[in-house]
Amino acid sequence: MQEDKQLKELLTKWAVQHPSAGFTSQVMQQVTSAYTSNANTPPLYKQRLLKIVFGLFVIVCIVLLILSFTTPATLLFRFNVKLPASYFSQGFSFLITFWIVMFLNLILKKYPVKTA
């Protein structure tokens, strides 16, 4: 125990390393710039707005569900547009390409390509 104390004393006296003289000011400069850049960046969406949209969506779903039980099924309008068959294949290829790009983007974000 005493030996431990003595060794601690020896190491505290002689083995502590000190960073360069301007270390604190350098850190504070970076901290301040990180704080100001963070403070000036407006959030992409407000957390409350997201909650309101989600709440509205749930309410609308519930209302529609109740209406479907209480009122007879009548269509408000008739959707009757004939689309050419090529539209479907184009739409399908678009979806495939979109998801491939999305996955590639995710992978590249996780494992960025190192450039020399």
């Binding site: 390393q17 000190h18 960073p19 604190t24 850190v27 504070m28």
Partner: peptide, 21 residues
């Protein structure tokens, strides 16, 4: 934010010593 410099001053040597070792 300037109050953070107090923490930096207090722990800089110990953080640096550990990182160095």
């Amino acid at each position: 934010i300037p109050a953070y410099s107090e923490l930096v001053n207090r722990y800089s040597s110990m953080v640096f010593t550990l990182a160095y070792n």
